[in-house]
Every structure is written in C-alpha cells, then in structure tokens.
Design a binder for these strands. Structure first.
Length: 975
DNA sequence: GTTGGTTCACTTTTT
DNA sequence: GTGAACCAAC
C-alpha cells in the first residue's frame, strides 16, 4: 500500500470529515478500503455508529462493507453496535423509513390508503407484469370514456405503460390525485423554447456545401420519416421550404393537440396503479423509494429525526434523480453545512437503461443547487449551504499494468459509428490524466487483437487462446501481490481468465462450445430459463396436464422422445381433426408418455411436484432446473396458484431472464457480460464478440410511449380516421419533435468498454469475427495490428469429464423446433410479391388497405356472436348484412371462429376460420372482409386456399367450397 | 458528393 | 421497429 502522505488523495479523504465531498474514485483505486478507513476515523473522533449512514446500491456491496467495517474496526467499538449500524442498501433503508413513519404518506398524494407495516415488495419482473396486466384490463373497462383513442393507440403494449410509470417515478415525477403538480406537468409537456433553439441549429444549411440551399440532416430525416411511415393529417407544404425546413413551422410541429389528453390519461393510470398495489399491500422498488422520499419530505418532525450527522454514499454513479434528492434530505444541517460524502466513478456509469444518471456526478455542483431550490420552493427544507464542496480525485490504481491503464483512456475517446465523434472536451474536463499504476507489472503485460473468420471460429480461437495461456508457462505468468506489496509469480490458471461479452447469448454459446472440447468454463448471469430445453419441456408437460390434446404441448415432448418429423405430423393432424369438433382418437401417441401423463394427473393439484417430476424424468438436476422449480414455487407463493395461470405466465415470460450461476467447476474460466463484471478484476481479460451491431450496440429506443427531455411525454401512435378508414397511424408530431431533440449517443457504450478494459490486471485480448468500429479503432489507435492466423493446439482438461458434470443448455433460438406460424404471416411472405406489382401503381393505397383492421376486428367479433344466435343491436350496416346472410344459409350446422392447426412442409400453421357451414353434400368456408375494394383479393385467395386444403384433408368425404364475403361491397367471391 | 434503397442483427441488471 | 453499413444511381 502507498505510504501515508498529505498528498495522497485517499488520506485527504480519510481526514476530511466535515463538509460536502464528491470523490471521483476510478477503477481499482481502493474505494472500499478508503471508505472503511474513513469510517474508522469517524469512530476515533467519537462519532457513534448510529450517527453515520453508509449506503451502497447492491446487497453484496452492503454486506461486504459491513463485513469490512466489523473486521477492521471492531477494536474501536463493540461488534454488536457495529452490527446494528445503518450500513445498508438504498432500498432496505427506504423500506425501514416507510415502516417507521411513512405508512400514511399516500395521503399526501390524495390517496386514501395506508401502507401497512408488513407490505410485500414486488421483486420479480414477471409477477409485476402479470399484476399490471390484470390491473390494466380493469382500468381500461372503467376508463374507456374519453380515452378510447388512446387505448386503441396503445393497443396491447401494456408493458410499455408499466415501464414508463417506473421511469417517471425514478425521475421524481409523481402523480397527484386530481392533477400533476406544476413543474412535473411542465416537463411532461415539453419545452418549446428549447425545441425551437435546437430546430434552428439543426436547420442551418451545412457549411461547405456547393449549392446555396441544400438539404440538411434534419430535413433529410423528416423526409425519410414521411416516406417510411403512415401519418395522419400532416401538411407537408407547411413544413418543407425547398430543401431546408420552414422556420415558421416550429409551432405546427411541436404542439400536438392530443398530447394534453394523453398526459392526463397517464396520470390516471399511474395513480390508479399505485392505489391498486396499495390495496394489495404491495410496493414495487420505484414506489418504495417514492414513498420514502415523500414521507421524509412532507413530515418535518420525522425528517429531523431521521437525518444523520454523517452520510456516505457508495457507487454514486448508479443513483437516479429521485435518489439524489432523497440523499440531500437525509443530511443533518450542522453549522450551515452537511457532512455528505459521495463516492463514485462516472466512467463506470452503465445503467442508463435503469434511469441512472451520470450527471449526478459530472454536474454534481449544479444539481445540488438546483435540487435545493426545488426542495425549498414552498418551505425551507434544505438549510445547509450547498455551494461549498470539494472534489477529491483518486488516481492511484492498485490493479492494472501501466500499459492497460494508458490504453483504457482511449476507450472513452473512440468513435462508435463512422460519422460520430465522441465529446473529447467532456472527457478531458473530467478525466484529465490516466490513472497511475501502483503495481509493477510492466514486464508481464500484453494487449492483443485477434480476428477470426466466422462465429464458430471465434469460439475456437477463444478456446485455443485459453489453452495457450494456461500451457505456455514461459510466455504468460501471473504476479500476485500481498498486503505489503510483496509479490510472487506463478503460472496461469483457468480461473484467472474472464471472457466478457456485450450480450448474454455469446457467453452461453461460448460456454457450450468450450465444454464440448473439455475446456472448463463457468457462466454467471442472467438466462432465459424457459427457453432452455429444461424450461421448454416443463412448459410442455404443464400444458398437457391442462389439456392433453394441446398440440403445442405434444410437439416438444414427442420431439425429445425421438419421434420422426413425419410421425409428429401425423399426430398433429389427428389433433387438428379433433379440434373441429369430432373426437377421432382417444389415446395418447405413446403408451409410456401416456402413463407418465397419468402419473402427473394423479397429482395434478401440485404444480411444483409436476415440474420436479418432469425434470427428474429427463435427468436434469443442474442450475437451470433448480432455478425453474424455484421460480415456479415463487409464483405459486405470490398467489398465482392455478395451473392455467402458471402456463400462461411461462408463455408470457419466456424471454424474461433469471439470474443463475451455471457450472461450478472449481478451476474454470469465467464468462459473463460486461455489466455483470463491474466491480470485479481478473489477471486475464478477453473481450470477445467485438462484432458489428453487437458492440457498440446500435439498437434504438423502443416502446409506444416516449419521454424525451424537452419533448415531453408523447404517444408514438395515433388512432384516427383518414376519411376512409379507422387506423392506427404513426404520430408525426412525436417523430418529428424527437428527431430534433433526441440525439442518439454512444457515451454509455464507450463507458461499457472502459469498464471491460479496466477489469484486466495484466493481459487484455480482443476477439472478433466481423470487427466492429470499436475493435478497429482501438487496434488502430494503440498501433497493435490484429492477428488473423492465430492457432494453438487445445489441451483438454483430463482430470474431469466436464461436459458430463453439468448439462449443457440447448440453443435459445427456437430454430431447431417445429415452427408455429400464423396464416397471416404466410400471407405476408406473398405480400412482398404483391407489393412488387403495386410498385408501379400506388404503394400508398396498398398500405392503407392493410390498415382497416380495427373495424374488421369489431365486425368479426359481432359476427361470431350472431352465428352463436345472440341478438345484437348495431348501427353498423355490415352487421345487418351478416344477419340477413346467416338467416339465408340453410345449413345443417354452423361453426364460427374455428381454430385450425395444420402441419404443412416444415411448419405448423395456425389460423381462424370465420364461419363453417355444413351441408348434406358439401362444406363451405366463409370469410368476411371489410375492404372497400377487391385490391387484396389475390392475397385473400392464398389464405382461403390454405384453409381449404386443411379442411379438405379433415373432411375427405365431402367437397369443400370457399367463399369470400365482401361486406362493404355486399358481394361474394368464389375461390 | 449526395441521395435513396436494401440489408442486417437485435440489450444490459439491481433493488 | 430501428440505426448503421453498404451499394447503386445520379
């Protein structure tokens, strides 16, 4: 460890106890160590442990911090007092706050509902989504008046509504019972002034162009939007002025009449959801922080009581806006100042998607002032002075070699796309010098780049490189340091190596490939457990338990049993025939499987038993299987007790990930995502999968609701009538406003790269098969050329049969399974051909005709009721036509909305037939269409022929006819 | 050089 | 559904 000196920033921090401090603690600079020593110094100064609040973000970090404090400081004060000291996570602190004084805090929002002391926290995403869905359907029923168009525009994007609620909450925007508060409403509405400034800046002609008036980027992107999307009521002549944009169109673009109603709608969903959860005695993590914040803010007595003399916050780059404000409320005013110490590293802020904000650190000073003003707007709540604070920078790095530290600075300064430039001024301002290496590793360090030919050779390359590292003991050595800085050298072990990737799938696939070649690899991180073989089989059997004629249950089961495709097909056909009403086949396809199903049925009330028995049957007992049973029993404990609940939940959450440690080989390479690796360190780091479209990730924002700074809260879609059809159009106000105000930035991708690189102590390698710009830029900037002919003989680990020790998960992608496709998706394939033929004519007409779906769905629903003999009053002319049509049918039997499942080629087709009429000598398929023209007839014929082909096989004894009824035209067409 | 069309690959995780 | 890369056409 470095010598104690007045110049060492660590020592400065440890001695600086009073006042506000922002500690910029880079990677590997001994942050935890310093915090513990500072804590010790406070105890030396006779500060009581209960007067020091120490907050971290994760449970692990909190536990570790408490352990360190107890281990190092128990000489100064009794262990029992340290055990009770407030050293905890942010959320457990909030939970404590609510339990002690926040139970009536909903009242301040106008909600007549207390939080009971023993509330539950919604920990699992899947369960919260399921609850929210249930809430939403009731909400929709009760609030259809005035919001019909919004519900139509949102369609079934229920998850988007939930994530926006959470986003607003973490930004400190809370709903009121009757209205938004003024400043929240302002940020939800947006800021026209700022829009206007940005618009003018972007609309200036590009310098250096030939012509006087030329297209600028913003007009190009507007034109592209118009070309590609379908907009309602947009007057292009108002916006475009030759090639640039008309500056007078700013108001026209920015102000959207429907926005006000949407913001009001959103307040209602938001507050109703809070009420819904409170009634169930539940809180999610966001509402937990919200209520803690509110109860401290609104209750002066309580606030005085809960404030601390000393507050220390770790991992400050992982806080969001509301957490920053809450922290300010927790500091006691002592002699006009607060004793607040926040420690973090903005360069490692990689949780933007979770609404954390690195500006909490980079704009620390401005935020302190702004939040103080905001909190004090009605009464004086923050009394201490926020203008005086010090910034302490930790620059001594106790982890990596000089080579790696110098290299790491480049990661923040490289381009992420061809035409993008990083903000080097910003980086210079907050990260002037590379960290100083405290470890002598210069004789044992290396950075290298490797390029493979394709995906599978990248896996092989990794495996070979790992083999080389472990076996070439002269070339690679690990140097370890003890507490006094003395070092020893030894050979590389598998467990010294970490393979990092931007995404999870690469890690899991790499693990599988490595295990095949007997190279030991463990994985730690999230996994879509219900898409694993284990998950798919459990889901399948549960489906069969619910309904033993369910084809989607039988497919994976028969596949696993080794049935040939043609045999599976045969059975599927039988089920199809049965689904049309006749039971043709009463037994199971396989006696063994039937017996097993009966075994499950005998215990069918016990879902956990069923899941466990299924996993047992196939001999699964690995981490994935354990997680599956754990998750299912969690669901059951949360009140989702029926089999159909569970089956639906698995279907809905198949792409939800659950955290697992996969593989427990003692000496093994670890593979994980970069996010997961934050806070850890390894002698050897291989950053793999540096491929285009993967890292940097270029995926844009998704979701139907957008909330962009200064643009406000807006809906991306708009339901309306274009003179001919009701249709869900894109909202051009939203698209255009966001095109001006929302800039895609890659800073977080660069920080992610920074995190990855700074994990490495001695050896750092990059691999890729389709090099991304990060890969090439880093290689170029560092002057290290990528090798593309690396090879090394793999030496398998002979001591253990690793591939048998743990079962290897099957590929995630369902490509090996029988595909289920809808008739409509088949039609879409043909649409491309039809689109070709429309190209010369009117493409717009073609697209518009696809959009009449809304009305069509309504009519189909009514038609189903009519066929079932239910009387309906309706003003729609189509309904009367259907009535008349049905009366004149004269058939012996009618079936409406007949679901068909039909195996064809390599796919299983699903679809719904509107109406089947049975006659003595024939069967007729009727399909209603609400089009106003017969333009789509070729497409519909494809659909009809599929139905016909399917039906003809089931009823081979009678001819099947097919008729399309164009309701609007009142015309029948034979197919 | 600019523009437009087509193709390609698809997230990260903690409380 | 989306942004970037690539390519062909002016």
């Amino acid at each position: 460890m470095a010598l104690k000196s007045a110049n060492n920033p660590q020592d400065i921090l440890i001695e600086s106890l009073d006042g506000i401090y922002l500690v910029d603690a880079g990677a590997g600079t001994g942050k935890t160590y310093s915090i513990v020593r500072r804590y010790g110094n406070l105890l030396d100064k006779k500060v009581k442990p209960e007067e020091i609040l120490l907050i971290t973000f994760s449970r692990n970090a909190a536990e570790q911090m408490k352990d360190e404090v107890i281990t190092n400081l128990s000489g100064k004060i009794s262990i029992s007092r340290l055990l009770e000291a407030p050293i905890m996570t942010f959320h457990s602190f909030c939970s404590k706050v609510i339990k002690s004084a926040g139970t009536d805090s909903p009242l301040t929002m106008g909600i007549n509902e207390n939080i009971s002391g023993n509330f539950d926290i919604l920990e699992e995403k899947t369960i919260e989504r399921e609850l929210f869905r249930r809430f939403y359907f009731t909400f929709r029923k009760n609030n259809s008046k005035g919001f019909e168009e919004i519900f139509q525009s949102l369609e079934n994007k229920i998850d988007d509504v939930l994530s926006m609620i959470k986003k607003l909450c973490s930004k400190g925007i809370f709903p009121g019972k009757k209205s938004w508060n003024e400043s929240d409403l302002a940020s939800l509405t947006g800021n026209f002034e700022r829009f206007s400034e940005e618009f003018d800046r972007l609309n200036a002609p590009k310098p250096g162009k030939k012509k006087d008036v030329v297209n600028n980027d913003i007009s190009i992107s507007f034109k592209k939007l118009i070309r590609e999307k379908l907009y309602l009521e947009i007057d292009e002549s108002k916006i475009f002025n030759e090639h640039v944009l008309n500056p007078d169109s700013k108001e026209y673009i920015f102000f959207d009449d429907s926005q006000k109603n949407f913001i009001e709608f959103f307040r209602r969903v938001y507050i109703s959801y809070i009420e819904f959860l409170l009634k169930k005695n539940m809180l999610n993590y966001e509402f937990l922080v919200m209520f803690a914040y509110i109860s401290i803010l609104k209750n002066q007595n309580f606030r005085k009581k809960i404030q601390y003399r000393y507050v220390m916050i770790d991992e400050f780059q992982d806080t969001d806006e509301i957490q920053f404000k809450l922290i300010m409320l927790l500091c006691k005013n002592i002699n006009d100042t607060a004793n607040l110490c926040v420690v973090g590293d903005w360069k490692q802020g990689i949780y933007g998607f979770r609404n954390t904000n690195i500006k909490n650190i980079t704009d620390f000073s401005e935020n302190l002032t702004a939040y103080k003003n905001e909190l004090n707007s009605t009464e004086k709540i923050i009394e201490y002075d926020v203008t005086k604070h010090k910034r302490i920078i930790f620059e001594n790095n106790y982890r990596s070699s000089k080579l790696i530290l110098n290299f790491s600075k480049d990661t923040l300064l490289i381009k992420a796309t061809k035409n993008e430039e990083p903000d080097s001024e910003f980086v210079k301002k907050f990260f002037e010098n590379p960290l100083l290496p405290m470890r002598k590793l210069d004789d044992m360090t290396e950075i290298n780049f490797y390029e493979a030919e394709d995906k599978s050779s990248e896996y092989n390359l990794l495996i070979q490189k790992i083999s080389e590292l472990v076996n070439e003991n002269k070339k690679y050595k690990i140097r370890e340091f003890d507490k006094d800085g003395n070092s020893i050298e030894r050979n590389v072990r598998y467990s010294d190596i970490c393979v990092l990737s931007r995404n999870r799938n690469f890690c899991l696939e790499f693990q599988r490939e490595a295990l095949k070649q007997d190279i030991p690899v463990n994985y730690s991180g999230g996994m879509e457990i219900f898409l694993s073989e284990q998950g798919i089989l459990v889901n399948a059997w549960l489906k069969l338990l619910l309904n033993d004629r369910d084809i989607s249950g039988w497919l994976p089961v028969l596949d696993k049993e080794g049935y040939a495709y043609s045999e599976i097909n045969k059975f599927a056909e039988i089920l199809v025939k049965e689904s049309s009403g006749n039971t043709l086949y009463n037994s199971y396809p396989d006696e063994k499987l039937g017996n097993f199903l009966n075994h499950l049925k005998n215990n069918s009330s016990d879902i956990q038993f069923a899941a466990g028995t299924v996993l047992n049957r196939y001999g699964f007992d690995d981490a994935v299987s354990i997680k599956i049973t754990e998750v299912i029993s969690n669901w059951i404990n949360s009140g989702l007790t029926s089999l159909s609940d569970i089956v639906r939940l698995i279907d809905n959450s198949s792409d939800d990930e659950f955290s697992i440690d996969y593989g427990d080989i003692s000496d093994a390479v670890l593979t994980q995502t970069i996010h997961k690796s934050k806070g850890l360190e390894y002698p050897v780091v291989i950053i793999a999968n540096m491929n285009v479209k993967v890292f940097p990730d270029t995926k844009g924002e998704q979701g139907v609701i957008s909330f962009v700074d200064n643009a406000g809260l807006r809906l991306k879609t708009q339901f309306g009538f274009n003179g001919k059809y009701y249709y869900k159009f894109s909202n051009w106000h939203t698209d255009f406003t966001n095109a001006v105000l929302k800039q895609k930035d890659y800073d977080e991708e660069r920080r992610l790269l920074y995190v990855a690189v700074t994990r490495a102590k001695q050896y750092l390698f990059f691999t890729s098969y389709s090099p991304s710009i990060f890969f090439t830029e880093l290689s170029e900037k560092s002057g290290i050329r990528a090798e593309n002919d690396f090879s090394y003989g793999v030496l398998p680990v002979k001591t253990a049969k690793i591939s048998e020790a743990i079962s290897i998960p099957k590929p995630h992608k369902k490509e090996n399974q029988v595909k289920l496709v809808s008739v409509h998706s088949l039609m879409e394939k043909h649409e491309q051909d039809i689109a070709e033929s429309f190209k010369s004519g009117n493409d717009f007409e073609f697209r518009k005709s696809l959009g009449s779906a809304e009305k069509g769905i309504l009519i189909h629903r009514l038609a189903q009721k009519l066929a079932a003999g239910i009387e309906i009053e309706s003003k729609l002319p189509e309904v009367n036509k259907i009535k008349k049509f049905l009366q004149g049918l004269n058939s012996s039997k009618l079936m409406s909305e007949v679901n068909i499942i039909y195996p064809k080629d390599n796919e299983v087709i699903r679809g719904t037939i509107d109406l089947l009429a049975f006659y003595e000598d024939k069967i007729v398929i009727y399909d209603y269409k609400t089009d106003e023209s017969k333009n789509n007839l070729p497409k519909y014929k494809i659909q009809m022929n599929i139905y016909k082909e399917c039906l003809q096989q089931i009823y081979a004894d009678k001819p099947v006819e097919c008729k399309i009824y164009f309701l609007t035209l009142d015309e029948f067409v034979d197919v």
